[in-house]
Amino acid sequence: MIKDISLARKQTRVIDPAKNLHQRQLKQRIAFALIWLAGIIAITALLFIVGYMVSNGFKVINLEFLTTRPAGGVSGKGGISTTIVTTIYLVLLTITIAAPLGIGTAVFMVEYTTEYAGKKNLVGYLINLIRTSVEILAGVPSIIFGLFGFAVFVSYMKLKFSLLSAGLSGACLVLPLIIRTTEEALLTVPKSYREGSLALGTTKWQMIFGVVLPSALPGIITGIVLSVGRVIAETAVFWVTLGGSYRLPKNLLSSGRTMALHVYMLASETTAFDKALGTSAILIVIIILLNLAINISSKQFSKKFSGK
């Protein structure tokens, strides 16, 4: 007993409370300083890139640049009008294909198969397979989607370099993203909503369509907008599936050129580096606007339904 007390005293003597506090505060200051430094470096790099693009790119941007189509050739003459339209077409096509598939898959995985997940039976095996595939696909470099699209859609299905080939390949590219964000959004819908709906005597489908999907909508929309950004920014996949025609696509089987692709081509095959920068600047602005749109829309949603 006495031994214990003397031992305890010794220990308290070793730890001087004031000094200890000082040390702990010092550690905290150093850690905070490092975190700040990291943040500042990242933001500076980012601002530098955006600043460089915008300051150099905006020189070439005017109404004519936006409304005339590229002239082709090594000089890089002309504007970017057809590439803007092609980008919009491709985004719409890709999302039209990918969103229903992705959302459907996520709904299937979350709502219809929870009881099978992790179980050793056919459905459980299938779910695990889908989940693993989605995770692998999300980490695969985009050029591999491009090669797959080229092999399957362009060559094997003979869709050629076309909007359709690109849209299908693009859909493969963004599918994992949509599935994962939708799955996460569905998982955050409280169990109480599901029970509340079923307790009213609704069918499971009425529950999903009437309560679960609307509640998960902000998350799903975020996933879709992220996918839009991904399609806008992608070059590798479309390089090998969309072809590169600077003309306006006439139908789904026409070749075309998105803005990002145009930037790549301007930079690598022409002397008009300033126009590449100009197009990039517009791309960056669009991406920034898209991000703002996500923020605003998700805030609007939560505002509307939290009632504040």
Binding site: Y193, G196, S197, G201, T203, Q206, G210, S215, F305
Partner: peptide, 24 residues
């Protein structure tokens, strides 16, 4: 019918919360 431990209105308007069941 059932009423649960924690109030669980759907993230819908008051009207839609109640109309949901009859509509279904």
């Amino acid at each position: 019918g059932m009423v649960f431990q924690r109030p669980n209105p759907f993230p819908k308007t008051i009207f839609e919360n109640i109309a949901f069941g009859p509509r279904a």
